[in-house]
Design a protein around this nucleic acid. Structure first.
Lengths: 151, 151
DNA sequence: TCGATATAGACAAGTTGCTTGTCCATTCCT
DNA sequence: AGGAATGGACAAGCAACTTGTCTATATCGA
């Protein structure tokens, strides 16, 4: 470390974090506006996992990076609000397979549309070409998740 | 919306969120490894604001997007742990000006170094040129904060 | 200059989303 | 078949936030 650290890395982190915050807020606001006002941003990560072929509470917990108990509480809430249902697991009598209800799917579709809208201004700002390059480079960084930001 | 929505916007959000999560984790891990193991990622946003010329509890609250009471609690904790001190405000006898202690500055320097290290792998992966372009394009999106991601 | 209103922050209590700890039913391994 | 592992429910506790209230100081208009 003879040379002083370049300022870009800090700027990069700050930019990514600020952008992530704006995206979450923008998507959430639109989902709420679409009538799903009893959800919070974190729920989206659960929907994403459950919609992906169903999941058990344990799988969901691992995906979210929380304990089984925390996931179970979250599932309770989503069941109570009508987004998720517990069905019997086809191969394991201990487990329950979580699935989205029709309302759950409707919310997922709304969230997808919200994401498209939330990103649109950035897309316009850069233009299709630079935006595509940006996505390509971000993908090249290969962020592996857990999808849930762990703070 | 005659054409189906392009898949990129969703991918873009997911990429940015996953990357943000990795960055926060990577920076936090290094800060902890540097001996500041009684802090959590969220504290960094407070340090950033206070180091920027000092701040009152109210200003900090607004910056973090939480209530004054929540900010006051956080400040209590940072004072107790020796990172922050409350001094008299030069022009307002009601307010207290928050400043970093030497330990607070040491932690800030460690966090800056941690950010440089955490970003380094991505930098290497893309190469200087593409990385610089990435930073430039992210900056062009002009994310305005609040610096604190609001979920 | 004084009185009304706004602001900085302390104090108290309640809510919530997570944690650890424990237990039972079912499954897997030998 | 029997013992260890696993999915998940139940209970209690904690930590970070919230709303509500209060005092001291500041600001502004008459």
């Amino acid at each position: 470390m003879s040379a002083p650290a370049a300022p870009e890395p800090l700027a990069f982190s700050a930019l990514v974090l600020a952008l992530a915050g704006e995206l979450v807020q923008g998507i959430h606001d639109r989902v709420v506006a679409a009538g799903f006002d009893d959800l919070r941003p974190a729920h989206g990560f659960a929907f994403a996992r459950i919609s992906y072929g169903g999941a058990t509470t344990g799988e969901l917990a691992e995906h979210l990076g929380v304990t089984k108990q925390a996931a179970a509480q979250l599932v309770d809430e989503l069941v109570r609000k009508g987004y998720v249902e517990r069905t019997t697991h086809p191969t394991d009598a201990r487990a329950r397979l979580l699935r989205l209800t029709e309302r759950g799917w409707a919310c997922t579709r709304a969230a997808d549309a919200a994401a498209v809208e939330a990103v649109a201004p950035y897309r316009r700002l850069l233009g299709e070409e630079r935006f595509a390059a940006l996505v390509r480079d971000l993908a090249a960084l290969g962020p592996k998740g857990p999808i849930r930001p762990a703070w």
